[in-house]
Amino acid sequence: MRALFAVVFAFGLLVGAPAYADKEADAYYKEGLAYKMEGKVDQAIGSLEKAVAKNPQHGMAWASLGALYKQKKDLPKSISAYESATKVITKDKTLWRNLGTAYANNSQNDKARDALTTASKLDPKDAEIHALLGTVRRKLNDNKGAITELEQAVKIKADEGEWWHSLGVAYRFDNRIDDAIKAYEKAIEISPNESRYHFDAGAAWRRKDDPEKAIPHYEKATELDPTFSEGWFDLGFMYKRNHENDKAIAAWQKYLELNKGKDAEGGKRIEEEMTSIGGTPKKETPKKPAPKKAAPKKK
């Protein structure tokens, strides 16, 4: 009888906390949620930490802690909380997605891939999870896998410009330039004011040695973001390739102004390119020091 009691008691410890602990944990959990609703993050965390101390199997308290730690930019604690939550609540795609995202933000891309794969298996039609998986797989140099996930994402939900852009980047790394251009054009159609989308489309057309198609994208990129030094750099080369030397010189001069004090090697190259087509890099005239004021005469 004692042996049986010992087994039952041990099993009880494994499967959960005593009833009174559950009640106390629930009370702290509800208190934490109330604080969270009021925007009192630190108090919410304090109450939720008490909840999981009373009942380490309180999955919802762990899940809420994961979100709050993330809000506080404490990734290690956020990850630990989401890990504890998914051990208890094993079939919630949102928890696995949040855990995967936290891993990715902490540069733990192998674990991010595994967590997001679990999330995707729980809901294969969740486009956002496919898109996140695509991004993580590209970071892991699994470009084929990235393309598969991103293609699935845009198939399910076709109105996210960022996903089309990411797909274009993956195609470019796979040397599928025509497919990359189509993806970039789709991204631009959805979000026409993203300078990076135009820049990457221009770069793809540049890879195809088609300055007529590349130039409008580079021009748009630098129009949307006049501080986009890479855009001015590439635009100058496309103007030169198109025998528009005056425009090339002007674009490169803009690059030199933006690049001042940054990439010395890049600056030197552009100065040489400008000189080769008859341009003269403009140097800033050093400002003369202000004249010193005469000391007041003693009376």
Rank of each mutant, 00 (worst) to 15 (best):
His165Ala: 15
Ile188Leu: 06
Ile181Gly: 07
Ser191Asp: 14
Ile190Leu: 13
Lys157Ile: 07
Asn143Pro: 08
Phe173Asp: 15
Ala183Arg: 00
Trp163Glu: 06
Ala180Glu: 07
Glu160Ala: 14
Ile147Asn: 00
Gly168Met: 04
Ala146Ser: 11
Gly161Asp: 05
Asp142Met: 06
Ile188Val: 07
Ala170Met: 04
Ser166Val: 09
Asn143Cys: 10
Lys182Ile: 10
Tyr184Asn: 01
Glu162Met: 11
Asp178Gln: 13
Asp179Phe: 02
Ala170Thr: 01
Asp178Asn: 13
Glu189Ala: 14
Tyr184Arg: 00
Gln152Arg: 15
Glu149Arg: 09
Ala158Pro: 09
Gly145Ser: 04
Ala146Cys: 10
Ala146Asp: 01
Val169Thr: 13
Asp159Trp: 06
Lys157Val: 11
Trp164Glu: 08
Gly161Trp: 04
Ala158Ser: 15
Arg176Thr: 07
Asp174His: 13
Asn141Ala: 12
Asn193His: 07
Asn141Trp: 11
Arg176Val: 05
Gly168Asp: 11
Ala146Val: 03
Phe173Met: 13
Gln152Ile: 08
Lys155Gln: 14
Glu151Leu: 12
Trp164Gly: 00
Asp142Ile: 02
Arg176Trp: 11
Glu149Val: 00
Gly161Tyr: 05
Asp178Gly: 07
Ala153Val: 03
Asn175Val: 13
Gly161His: 08
Trp163Ala: 03
Ile147Asp: 00
Ile190His: 03
Trp164Phe: 09
Ile181Cys: 05
Arg176Met: 15
Glu162Tyr: 11
Gly145Leu: 00
Gly145Pro: 01
Ile177Leu: 04
Ala183Lys: 02
Lys155Arg: 14
His165Phe: 15
Asn141His: 10
Trp163Met: 08
Asp174Phe: 09
Gly145Asp: 03
Ala153Arg: 00
Trp163Tyr: 12
Asp174Gly: 11
Leu150Met: 08
Asp159His: 07
Ile181Ser: 03
Asp178Ala: 12
Ala153Asn: 08
Lys155His: 11
Asp174Trp: 03
Ser166Cys: 08
Ile181Phe: 02
Asn141Leu: 12
Ile147Met: 03
Glu162Trp: 09
Ile177Ala: 06
